[in-house]
């Protein structure tokens, strides 16, 4: 393929993913405005979700995914829900039961729920489980790749570093860690609570190939996923710098540090209007 054609098709792919990310953002607001939720994370992670579910994870024959995605940071399930509405695995009607009494669309999912490999909510347990899955897949001779999303807050858990030491020691090159590095935990800035930086250097010293990227740049996310596949003898970690609500300015302005957004806390209609306008512009 000539590079001109390649870059042309790349441009088209990036545009499509941007549009998908915008739709994921809209879905996140639609879901969270019902009874509150982790809206800021869902919106901020929409670009990663679009790239992951609609580009990176290979499909199998059953309209599902060949590669395996492990959500460690349970409350980031909202990102998956926003994407699953576009994918078709869940209807918006089902997703709108998020946070309702007795729903099975849990804010932090339980193992066995469609789309979720582990029970996540007691944080910091995904990196080890995904390393175990990657180890097992490699042992079987399978070509499946394993992706695990976790957060800067989870970096404070010792379990995460036990996982990293194991994955580095085992040279699990089929394992990709995706870190939502948003400088936020439950009580505020992680830089203040307990600093996790410098993240790339820490993982490099554990035997990872590490790259810090802008977690809201589709181009950088795709490039990191590509780079991960080119690395032969090491696990890979992409440290995605983000901030809550990136992509919806009015909500980012009013709720820059809202780990959780109660229903009454946000001007959902203003957010929806803004994201609908973005969708409209990207659809031209």
């Amino acid at each position: 393929m000539s590079s001109a054609i390649e870059s042309g098709s790349n441009q088209k792919r990036i545009r499509e993913l941007k549009l998908l990310a915008a739709k994921i953002r809209r879905n996140v607001l639609d879901i969270c405005m019902q009874r509150g939720g982790y809206a800021g994370q869902g919106v901020a992670l929409a670009d990663i979700a679009a790239c992951l579910y609609f580009d990176e994870l290979r499909e199998d024959d059953n309209n599902w995914f060949h590669d395996r995605f492990v959500l460690s940071n349970g409350h980031d399930a909202i990102m998956c829900y926003g994407a699953f509405a576009e994918h078709g695995a869940y209807t918006m009607d089902a997703l709108r039961t998020y946070n309702a009494d007795g729903t099975v669309v849990d804010q932090s999912p339980i193992e066995g729920q469609l789309g979720f490999e582990i029970t996540a909510g007691s944080l910091g347990q995904g990196p080890s489980q995904s390393a175990g899955i990657a180890y097992g897949e490699r042992l079987k001779g399978s070509d499946k790749r394993v992706y695990c999303l976790f957060s800067d807050g989870e970096l404070q858990e010792g379990n995460v570093w036990e996982a990293a030491m194991f994955a580095g020691h085992q040279k699990l090159s089929n394992l990709v860690y995706i870190i939502d590095n948003n400088d936020l935990g439950a009580t505020g800035s992680t830089a203040t609570t307990l600093s996790v930086e410098p993240v790339p250097e820490k993982f490099e010293s554990f035997g990872f190939a590490a790259r810090r990227i802008n977690g809201n740049s589709i181009e950088e996310i795709l490039a990191a996923f590509e780079e991960a596949k080119s690395i032969r003898d090491k696990p890979y970690v992409m440290i995605c710098d983000t901030r809550l609500f990136v992509g919806i300015d009015c909500l980012q302005k009013t709720l820059p540090m809202a780990h959780y957004v109660a229903k009454a806390q946000a001007d959902w209609q203003a957010g929806l209007a803004e994201i609908e306008a973005t969708i409209e512009a990207l659809s031209q």
């Binding site: 944080l123 910091g124 807050g153 989870e154 404070q156 010792g158 439950a186 009580t187 609570t193 307990l194």
Partner: peptide, 9 residues
């Protein structure tokens, strides 16, 4: 005294 999200610690 704050130790971050690290309950064992």
């Amino acid at each position: 005294l704050e130790v971050g999200m690290a309950e064992q610690n």
